Computed example of a mutant assay.
Amino acid sequence: MAKKTGLSFEDLATSFRHQNFKPLYFLFGEEGFLIDELQDILIENALEPSQHDFNLDIVYGSDTEASKVIGLCQGYPAMAPRRVVIVREFEKLENNRQFKSYADDPNPEAVVLLACTNKPNLSAHPYRALKKKAAWSHFKPLYDNQMPGWIKKYVRGQGYDIEPQAVQMLADYVGTDLQTAASEVEKLITFAGERDTLTANDVLDASGQTREFNVFELQSAIGEGKYADAMRITNRILQQASNAHSEAIMIVAVLNAYVDKLWKLQMPQAQRMSKHKLAGHIGVSPYFVQEYKQAARRYSMRAVQDAHAALLAADYELKGGSRRDPRLILTLLVRRLLPQRVTA
């Protein structure tokens, strides 16, 4: 009977690091970054670098066919404790149904990892057999409110701490793209130098923005209804950007995440949540919950819906739907995002 719950990333990474290998792994899902990470951890711990030439095969399903891959899987290790065969884009492997039989009797002297770039039809073979016989995991994209926790854990895995404000800023910058998040963390580590804690200033330095004029000050000004401040910050950010068009796209993405949090705070269930539950609900540190709650009080549900519509329109224009100057697009956007009662 197929296991109903797959293994977590932490389960797999820990077993790899302890060299506790199964003969067959089946990984699938849209979050390829985590599969890439597990592939690297597997190779690092299963084989010495000197053993790679004769005992490591990484193939792509679109480049070969099943019988050849099964031949690799059934091979014996050469002067090594095991062979490692990794098949990326397994869903594109011609005749991959042959792996139904391989799943019944995998080579005990090999570690085979089959990875799909999406969720296949698990009721059809070979996927049905693999889910039943192999160690498997489904890697779904993270939700917005899961990103701060993931960033914090990832940073600690690199041997650093990170300030709560820096976590939130970074989460707002990158959305749910783990590859981008990991790349940004590498930049922050460079800016940190010999320090072991990543700060909000590091995030600003890496983005090219300043303490006074940055997208987070902009969202605060919008949430407080301060039109003059919001416009001054918007103009200064674009002036100091090396590419005003790309910067405008980033600003829209961050403001969209901000408005999404305000929308979540409008939900009836949010009114009954404790501070810590509310922080998890909207995906921020408890330290920042009050600021978001105050901003949300200035908006009606209709105003939040209008803000989402304005952001969608601006994103469309900036990504090819219009030839208007990005400064004009953002000027009009900021005006539409402000709560109804506006102060200078």
Rank of each mutant, 00 (worst) to 15 (best):
T5R: 09
K22Q: 15
K22P: 04
Q39H: 12
L42C: 09
N45S: 09
A46H: 01
F54R: 06
S62V: 07
A66K: 05
I86Y: 03
L93F: 00
P108D: 07
L114N: 01
L122K: 00
A124L: 06
A129Q: 03
A134S: 04
A135S: 14
S137P: 01
H138N: 02
D144A: 10
M147H: 05
W150Q: 10
W150T: 06
I151H: 03
Y154H: 14
V155Q: 07
D161S: 15
P164H: 08
V167I: 14
A171V: 05
G175S: 09
I189R: 13
F191D: 03
E194C: 15
T197K: 15
T197N: 11
R211K: 15
Q219T: 13
Q219I: 06
Y227M: 06
Y227L: 13
Q239L: 15
A241C: 13
N243V: 14
S246I: 07
Q269Y: 15
Q271P: 09
L278Q: 04
V289K: 03
Q290R: 12
Q290A: 08
Q294F: 10
Q294Y: 08
R297M: 08
R298W: 09
H308C: 07
H308M: 12
A309S: 15
R327S: 03
I329C: 10
L330W: 00
L332G: 05
L333W: 05
V334L: 14
L337M: 06
L338G: 02
L338I: 12
Q340W: 12
